[in-house]
Design a protein around this nucleic acid. Structure first.
Length: 889
RNA sequence: GGGCGAAUAGCUCAGUCGGUUCAGAGCGCCUGCCUUACAAGCAGGAGGUCGGGGGUUCGAAUCCCUCUUCGCCCACCA
């Protein structure tokens, strides 16, 4: 790992860009992120949600992958055999779209290229973006095992996909059939239910008159008038008195003239509109089912591209569906069929990849029968084996599982896994062959076979990810060692697409759920609260942030800013502001290290370290903080981990410990070099606690601490354990008292504008034991902390003019300020303080006077309130006394 | 039409079991400091009726009901 850097060679300026790259390469070169299956006694495993190869990563990925890395890094430090499996997703329809767009700009289409050449083009794209994505993950600091990088379309995973299809087919859980599916007319493919996003749409409701064959007419309403060209019946509710006598008669389809039977069906809601429904079995799922019950013809009236086909008469033939709609409405109007057009807000499905309005359409597709797969996946949740964080997502999962619908898995695309099905071309055979290996000819008749032209839904490979990446269907060592995985971190919008289906696949093919804890991270939004997206142009490129402020600063900002399940708003127009918390913190640590490193001394394990109050205090605080951080980790409250580290490093270590250590470091006051050794212990502790979140800067500092093995790295731990022996209530009480004392003097100095260089003598009366102890120990620090030249006892009535303060922890202090004191101001100050204490006192007394409180509240709460009264009364009395003396004097 | 989440300081957000001098942090703002690690800093401040209303309780930012606003998910009502 190269020679150990000398202790104090940190450059004066924190420059993450020069620091992070080399450290990352060293970690990878030393194999720190790799774990062999044979060594995995105590595994901890996460599989990455494979990013789509459609584009480079955005800040949402930055957040998602940082959270995974934080979890993974802590487990690795704890000694788990930690594996984070990386990889990318071929993202079938999405990737095909971006490449189609790319060739579109060159003026051609995928059909000009042909299937093979087009797929080659996509592979070119994939190689470029796949590499860039992996590069981004490395720049963020992700500690993935790169030797196990997978792609959903690589050979191994393709084999898994084929095996799964065949197995499901053999169990009759995959079937082919004609049903209504969501058809994207632009992508010219079927979509699953999940891939059609329903959004409100301000449409129209058209009320149309249909004539009855034997006289009279009847009103029908529709939002899609062009589909009437495919009507094959009308329907009413069987109990609807109004229409009882027309059931069984026929109506005439306007513009076409086709005779439509009138049927009665429970599906029709008599309350809606006229109570009569036009039935278009080929273009509406309900109509399709209704048609099945009444043996109606299903007439598909559109082409794949969404134009009216030859089943409709001229002049509609060949018109786009929306053109046809206009023409139909116009003709209805002309023909006197149109009763009214009303505004009608309703929900319309759109393609999740191109936003085109999907057409419900009868189509021959492949489906997965989901109910049997959902059963164990649901049971795992209900047993409590599968947990969601935040827990409320469990209900969403449960609800989806309970209302599961079959999954349309065939896509009329070129980019993806080919469906492993062949059809015999022999007219008298027509056998369907579903096979693990490509058949040369028809096994039944020896005739020529042709493979199904379609590919599988991209999620049909993703749902296998937790085990296909480990080598399944082969019984590999990896699979044995690392399945099931532990934690999944992903975004809530793919709960159904991916998470739920992975659980089903895990149960079905591995007999075990694929992970136990599912963490749902929030969405990254811009400062207007809008979701970041390419089309809005409001995204933030993680690399830009890493280049400018460092991966550590970005990671810290993200982790601290987003508790699980809550969205994160970032100012995309001012990156410096957005990432300032992380950047400032990293800079602070850097400068603290620059100060401390020249003074650190080796601290052998187990030796008693120091009797100094400050030393005992910082180690006690470190022990407590370690426990807090462990608790937060166990509850996946990573934002709390970040916050606690920040408060400790900045608020305790830098603001107080370093300041208190200054008088001793490198001086005869520290003969045994206790301060130098304590520095080492304290820094070693917080550097480790912070390493999962800010791996680079912590490693850079830690490797300069003394007493380390030459090739030691924080990456491999150990994770600090909270040392009970370091807990020191006495030292904590003393330093707390000192902090209050110093703060009080500073406040008085500031209040009266005492010049920074002016030293004051503070007089003190009735100081608490803790404060007395602290002042004895830290008298030498007082000048630097608060410009205090000396602390002397306070006589009962100070003869000089000055400012008073009463300490909560006990005691009263006086700062002689004859030159600057303003008695009115002092009186006002004391008055308002006395008022504040008085308010608190009466509130607290009120509680204690309430018999209900004393009777019902826990004893310790009551005792606390009683102690509070004593303290407040004491403070109040001192303040009143002071006020009297100021008034009389 | 159902279900869920959010509303706390100017901004972005914490606040676990209802109870600690509990109303907090960061950023921004004001005042004073280039104090020999750090001006990306230090010290001291200002700033909030915890969205409105009602309830439970000795006690509510926290639990219940309700209303308002915003956001998300699910749903075949033509």
């Amino acid at each position: 790992m190269g020679s150990a850097p000398s202790p104090n060679d940190l450059p004066p300026r924190y420059d993450p860009s020069g620091l992070e790259g080399p450290l990352y390469e060293r970690w990878v070169d030393n194999g720190l992120f790799h774990v062999a299956a044979a060594d995995a006694d105590r595994p901890y495993v996460i599989v990455i949600p494979p990013p789509n190869v459609t584009a480079v990563l955005h800040m949402g990925h930055g957040l998602n992958n940082t959270l995974q890395d934080v979890l993974v890094r802590r487990r690795r430090m704890q000694g788990y055999d930690t594996l984070w499996v990386p990889g990318t997703d071929h993202a079938g329809i999405a990737t095909q779209n971006v490449v189609e767009r790319q060739i579109g700009e060159e003026g051609s289409t995928r059909f000009d290229l042909g299937r093979e050449a087009f797929v080659d083009r996509v592979w070119t794209w994939v190689r470029e973006y796949g590499d860039r994505i992996i590069g981004q993950l490395r720049d963020i600091g992700c500690s993935c095992d790169w030797e196990r990088t997978r792609f959903t379309l690589d050979d191994g995973l393709s084999g898994a996909v084929r095996e799964v299809f065949v197995r499901l087919y053999e169990k009759d859980l995959v079937y082919r059939g004609r049903y209504i599916i969501n058809w994207c007319t632009r992508c010219a493919t079927a979509l699953s239910n999940e891939e059609a996003e329903h959004r409100d749409h301000n449409g129209k409701l058209y009320r149309i008159r249909y004539r009855l064959a034997d006289g009279g007419d009847i009103e029908v309403a529709t939002t899609r008038p062009e589909t009437m060209l495919g009507d094959t019946a009308l329907a009413v509710h069987p109990d609807d008195e109004r229409y009882r006598d027309i059931v069984g008669r026929t109506a005439e389809l306007p513009l076409v003239g086709r005779a439509l039977p009138i049927v009665a069906d429970e599906y029709v809601d008599p309350e809606f509109g006229s109570g009569v429904v036009k039935v278009t079995p080929a273009h509406d799922p309900n109509d399709f089912e209704l048609g099945g019950r009444h043996d109606l013809e299903a007439l598909d009236v559109m082409t794949d591209a969404g134009a009216m086909n030859d089943a409709v008469p001229e002049p509609y033939r060949g018109l786009d569906r929306f053109e046809a709609r206009k023409r139909v409405v116009q003709d209805l109007k002309t023909g006197g069929y149109l009763i009214a057009v009303e505004d009608h807000a309703h929900s319309v499905g759109r393609c999740y990849r191109c936003d085109t309005i999907v057409e419900p359409r009868l189509s021959l597709q492949w489906f997965v029968r989901m109910a049997p797969l959902a059963e164990p996946a649901l049971a795992a949740y209900e047993r409590g084996d599968l947990r969601f964080h935040p827990a409320r997502y469990g209900k969403t999962y449960q609800n989806w599982m309970e209302n599961i619908r079959d999954w349309c898995i065939s896509r009329q695309l070129w980019w993806g896994h080919r469906i492993p099905v062949w059809y015999c071309g022999a007219p008298d055979c027509g056998d369907v062959i579903v096979a693990r290996d490509d058949p040369a000819d028809c096994p039944r008749c020896g005739g020529d076979v042709e493979q199904d032209a379609d590919v599988l839904d991209t999620w049909f490979s993703s749902w296998l990810w937790p085990f296909s990446t480990l080598g399944w269907p082969d019984e590999t060592e990896d699979l044995d060692a690392f399945y099931p995985t532990d934690t999944l971190v992903t975004a809530p919008e793919i709960l159904f697409f991916w998470v739920a289906r992975m659980v089903m696949a895990g149960c079905e093919f591995m007999g075990e759920i694929p992970f136990t804890d599912v963490l749902l991270n929030g969405t990254v939004r811009d400062h207007h609260g809008r979701r970041m997206s390419k089309s809005l142009g409001n995204g933030i490129d993680p690399l830009e942030v890493v280049d400018a402020y460092g991966a550590d600063a970005m990671r810290f900002t993200l982790v601290r800013g987003s508790p699980l399940g809550t969205d994160l708003q970032l100012n995309n127009e001012d990156l410096e502001e957005a990432f300032r918390p992380g950047r400032n913190f990293a800079n602070k640590m850097w400068n603290a290290a620059r100060f401390a490193l020249p003074h650190v001394r080796a601290a052998p394990d187990g030796a008693p370290i120091s009797d100094e109050l400050a030393d005992r205090w910082i180690l006690s605080r470190l022990a407590r903080v370690t426990t807090e951080i462990d608790d937060a980790f166990e509850g996946f409250r990573l934002h709390e981990v970040a916050e606690t580290c920040h408060a400790f490093v900045w608020g305790d270590f830098c603001d107080w410990y370093l300041e208190l250590s200054k008088r001793r470091l490198g001086t005869p006051d520290d003969p045994a070099e206790a301060a130098g050794r304590t520095l080492t212990l304290a820094m070693d502790g917080w550097l480790r606690l912070l390493h999962p979140i800010m791996p680079f800067i912590t490693e850079a500092i830690a490797e300069r601490l003394p007493g380390r093995e030459a090739d030691a790295s924080l990456v491999t731990g150990p994770w600090p354990s909270a040392r009970e022996a370091w807990i020191d209530a006495e030292a904590e009480a003393a330093i707390d008292a000192l902090r209050e004392f110093v703060a009080a003097v500073r406040a008085l100095r500031s209040e009266y504008g005492v010049a920074p260089g002016t030293k004051v003598t503070v007089r003190l009366r009735d100081a608490s034991e803790a404060l007395t102890r602290a002042l004895d120990a830290e008298r030498e620090s007082l000048a630097a902390l608060a410009g205090i030249a000396d602390v002397r006892p306070l006589a009962d009535a100070p003869s000089e003019a000055g400012a008073h303060a009463v300490l909560r922890g006990g005691g009263e202090l006086f700062v002689p300020l004859a030159d600057v004191i303003d008695l009115d101001r002092e009186r006002g100050r004391i008055e308002s303080e006395a008022e504040r204490v008085g308010r608190l006192l009466s509130r607290t007394k009120g509680k204690l006077d309430n018999p209900g409180f004393v009777a019902n509240a826990p004893e310790e709460v009551v005792e606390r309130e009683q102690a509070k009264v004593v303290s407040l009364e004491e403070q109040g009395a001192r303040l009143e006394e002071k006020l009297r003396s100021l008034t009389s004097g």
